[in-house]
C-alpha cells in the first residue's frame, strides 16, 4: 500500500488533536477499500486539487462526534449535534486537512482544499469514484476516527 498519500494526514492528526486536549491517540491499522465506503454517524468530506486530486473523508460515530465537539468547545456539554457542534467538527476537518496540505508541501506536493461538507445519518454509502482508497483508523480517547484518502 502506498503510504505517501495517507502519511500527511496521520501526521496532521498526531499534531492537531493533542492541541485540543485529547489525551490518548492510538493509530490502528491501515486498510484499503475500493470505491464504496459505508459509514454511520458523522461523515465530513473535503475536496483536494493541485499536484494531486481527490477527496478526504473523516468518519466518526454519532456519540464520538458529540464527544469530540464537546472537547473542541472547551468541555461544553453536547447532547445534540446542533449547528455549533457541526461547525466545530467542520472546523476540525478543515484544520486537519489544511495541516495535511502543509505536510504535502514539505514533499514538494502542492495541494489546496475545498470547504468541508458535513452529513450525518445511518448507513451512509459514499462513492469516491476511485479504485483505491487508503484508510487509517485512530482511537482518540476511546472514540473511533476513520480517515479515507482517495488521491491520485
Amino acid at each position: 500500500m502506498d503510504l505517501k498519500n495517507i502519511n500527511p494526514f496521520i501526521d496532521a492528526v498526531t499534531e492537531i488533536l493533542p492541541q485540543f486536549g485529547f489525551q490518548s491517540l492510538v493509530q490502528k491499522g491501515f486498510s484499503e477499500k475500493s470505491k464504496k465506503i459505508i459509514a454511520s454517524g458523522v461523515v465530513i468530506t473535503l475536496g483536494i486539487v493541485g499536484d494531486k486530486k481527490g477527496n478526504v473523508v473523516y468518519c466518526i460515530n454519532q456519540e464520538g462526534a458529540k464527544q469530540i465537539a464537546s472537547i473542541m468547545m472547551m468541555g461544553m456539554p453536547v447532547d445534540e449535534l446542533d449547528d455549533m457542534a457541526q461547525s466545530a467538527l467542520s472546523e476540525l476537518s478543515n484544520m486537519l486537512t489544511a495541516n495535511a496540505c502543509i505536510n504535502f508541501s514539505k514533499e514538494a506536493v502542492n495541494v489546496d482544499i475545498s470547504v468541508p461538507t458535513l452529513l450525518f445519518g445511518e448507513n451512509i454509502e459514499l462513492n469516491l469514484n476511485k479504485e483505491e482508497i487508503s484508510c487509517v483508523e485512530f482511537d482518540v480517547d476511546g472514540i473511533k476516527l476513520e480517515i479515507y484518502v482517495a488521491l491520485v
Partner: peptide, 21 residues
C-alpha cells in the same frame, strides 16, 4: 477556480449540513 472530484452520498436517512457559509 478548479473543481475537486465529486463525492456521491447514497442512503435513506442522511442529513446534509449546509454550514454557515
Amino acid at each position: 477556480l478548479r473543481v475537486s472530484p465529486p463525492t456521491v452520498i447514497i442512503g435513506e436517512d442522511i442529513t446534509i449540513s449546509i454550514g454557515d457559509m
